[in-house]
Write a protein that binds this DNA or RNA. Structure first.
Lengths: 191, 191
DNA sequence: AAGTAACCACACCGGTCGGTATACTCGCAG
DNA sequence: CTGCGAGTATACCGACCGGTGTGGTTACTT
């Protein structure tokens, strides 16, 4: 309830809890981080955590939603700054590279959530899936705008490159994965 | 110790444990499956599990190693059956598509392990990373064989497409992701 | 002055986690 | 016939899991 729907400004303690939870969930994984640890690290009692967020599931969903919001804004800046349809599509990869530069070796939080949250009804899964749907729609619009022969097919390809770059970077240690993906995407949009 | 190193033929109960654990770890996630559940489902006491595998970490590593062995053999069949260097490279994507056809919506076990296992010293991580390293080497050899201008760069691109296809399929619901990845890979190898 | 939202401290709940200990039975090889 | 590996059954361990309840203290409204 509190998670994604309403945009209540969050109390100071609530903010601290969400920030702390975000860091811990991302760095150590959702399932391995307990509510006790989050409360402790946030300098807050567990009671306060449950007063603000209601349940761990809701807190997880809030974490994912906040991160999603940040990511969309981040990408928006890059695509807005780019000139021309082809460059706007490639700007998504620039955004990704800059985003990942921030020392994360832990991959995409949404993908991780899909792996960690086994229960198909978990509220966090909807956030994760929605973000991937959004990304595909973004690519679809950009592909069409760039005059791709088959925008749907091109959007799929761009999404594959996008997701693959993150995974290749994080699990196979391919440090140049994003740049490689961008190059292939560029070829794709040139034909 | 017992996990990856030696190839002890596994006792009947040990087999049952490993098979059960493999299914549960993959379907429900490593962290959410307890040793009690594995023992129960395998029709075995927890004592037996620990007698055979020593620890959960070792059992996890054994699960990943077994799955890795199966995957390599699977890919080997496809690449061996293909004619010509270009087709051999694309055969990896055919292998992937056929592999995933087996009703899994849970993605790559190695990638999942990288997400779930936070401890950098976990023995399962080495198995997972080694499999990705192997896959990249496979692509590197095939790219060179196919006469790619820059085999390293091409191998990276093929790996990105490979990993991205699985993720796009499982988290974004792009059902044709593997075929799309294969098509882009084909373009890549034609130039 | 009264009410209320936000927080604190702390104690507690049933259940599960990974892992161990003890003691016993079975089949098989020396 | 004896020893041993493989397996059974059961009970236990401390730690942690998500979550609740009680009671009290601020601080800002109305």
């Amino acid at each position: 309830m509190t998670a994604t729907g309403t945009e209540r400004p969050l109390t100071p303690a609530g903010r601290r809890v969400l920030d702390t939870a975000s860091r811990l969930f991302y760095e150590r994984g959702i399932n391995t981080v307990g509510m006790d640890l989050i409360a402790d690290q946030a300098g807050v009692t567990k009671k306060t955590v449950y007063d603000r967020f209601g349940s761990k599931d809701a807190l997880v969903a809030a974490y994912l939603a906040a991160r999603d919001r940040r990511w969309r804004a981040w990408v928006g800046e890059y695509t807005a700054a780019a000139e021309g349809p082809r460059e706007r599509a490639l700007a998504v990869f620039d955004a990704l590279e800059a985003w990942m530069e921030g020392l994360d070796p832990r991959g995409c939080a949404m993908v991780n959530a899909c792996v960690e949250l086994t229960d198909p009804d978990h509220p966090g899964l909807r956030v994760a899936h929605e973000q991937k749907r959004w990304t595909r729609e973004l690519f679809l619009g950009l592909a069409a705008e760039a005059g791709a022969a088959d925008p749907e097919e091109t959007a799929d390809a761009l999404l594959v490159l996008h997701e693959g770059a993150v995974v290749a970077y994080n699990t196979a240690g391919v440090r140049t994965a994003v740049r490689t993906a961008r190059r292939v995407a560029g070829d794709l949009l040139s034909r």
